[in-house]
Amino acid sequence: MGEAAGQDTAQKDGPRPRKRMSGTERREQLIAIGRSLFSERGYEATAIEEIAQRAHVSKPVVYEHFGGKEGLYAVVVDREMATLHKAITASLSTHRNLAPHSSRLRLERVTLALLTYVEEHSEGFRILVRDSPVAAADGTYSSLLNEAIGQVEYLLAADFARRSLDPDLAALYAQALVGVVSSSATWWLDVRRPSKEVMATHLVNLCWNGLAHLSAEPTLDPRTLEFGARGAGLAPAEERD
């Protein structure tokens, strides 16, 4: 009887109202929703109305926390950048005191660190690799790549000098190396095969073995130079004009 009476009371009272979120909880909820939508649709196609609707709040609540879509996007990008930057920095700094020949180990670590971020933070990586219309507090994915390029250039310049190669070309090779890894990671984001470990192994295989057998004075085949002189198959100059 007591149990039945309790059930009757619960039915009369109706469902309990939802617990009101604190300001911090609401902010985190909006960031999570915004992150998901920005990843799925991109910045331009995401509307404040849908963010508010998914959070079951009014639009003014979103504006109150972030000042608008741009502010929310900047927070999302800033957090993703911080996460990726921490992973990349840790992968390089862990072996900071190793001998110069440890460059391959550094390349392996940073490649695997990037692929691990792609695997564990897919939504965030999709946001970062898109053209960002907003400059977040800690920069953009492009700025992070530039930082990585700078560190790789430093390592390559020292290695080139030891091997009697032109250290001034280290910047060119650093651009190429970081570009290969970054572009491959973007491709792997969708296919997810092979595994990140196998992916890292083959990327390093391509990059490192290419570096290990660099020619001090590489040349193009004369037929390639002739082809280029003809405009690489393009229309004659007068037609292009």
Rank of each mutant, 00 (worst) to 15 (best):
V181Q: 06
A161Q: 11
T24Y: 03
H95A: 09
L203D: 03
H85L: 06
G71R: 04
D13T: 04
A237C: 02
F160G: 02
G67V: 05
S195N: 02
E238A: 08
V152S: 03
G228C: 10
Y73H: 15
Y117Q: 04
F38W: 09
A47D: 03
G210L: 11
P167Q: 03
I88P: 00
W208C: 14
L189I: 12
E50C: 12
L105E: 09
S142D: 14
L220R: 14
E226M: 03
V152D: 05
V62C: 07
L98D: 11
G210Q: 07
V110E: 01
V129L: 14
A82E: 14
A212F: 07
T111D: 00
R106D: 06
G71A: 13
L114I: 03
G68Y: 05
L30P: 02
E238Y: 00
H85Q: 07
E28V: 07
G210V: 07
P100A: 09
L30I: 02
S122F: 08
G67L: 04
E197G: 08
T224S: 06
C207V: 10
A148I: 04
R35Q: 11
L92W: 03
V75C: 04
R20S: 14
I31N: 08
H56I: 08
E40G: 09
T111M: 05
A157C: 06
K19E: 11
R109M: 15
S143M: 13
Q29V: 09
D159K: 01
G71F: 02
G68D: 09
V180Q: 09
P17L: 10
L155H: 06
L98Q: 08
F66Y: 00
E226L: 06
S182I: 01
L144M: 14
R96F: 12
R26P: 01
L169K: 00
D138E: 12
Q7N: 10
Y154E: 12
G23Q: 11
R26L: 12
V57R: 12
G6D: 06
L115E: 02
D13V: 06
A10D: 10
R109A: 15
K19P: 01
E50T: 11
R96H: 13
A32M: 06
V110A: 09
R26A: 00
V110F: 02
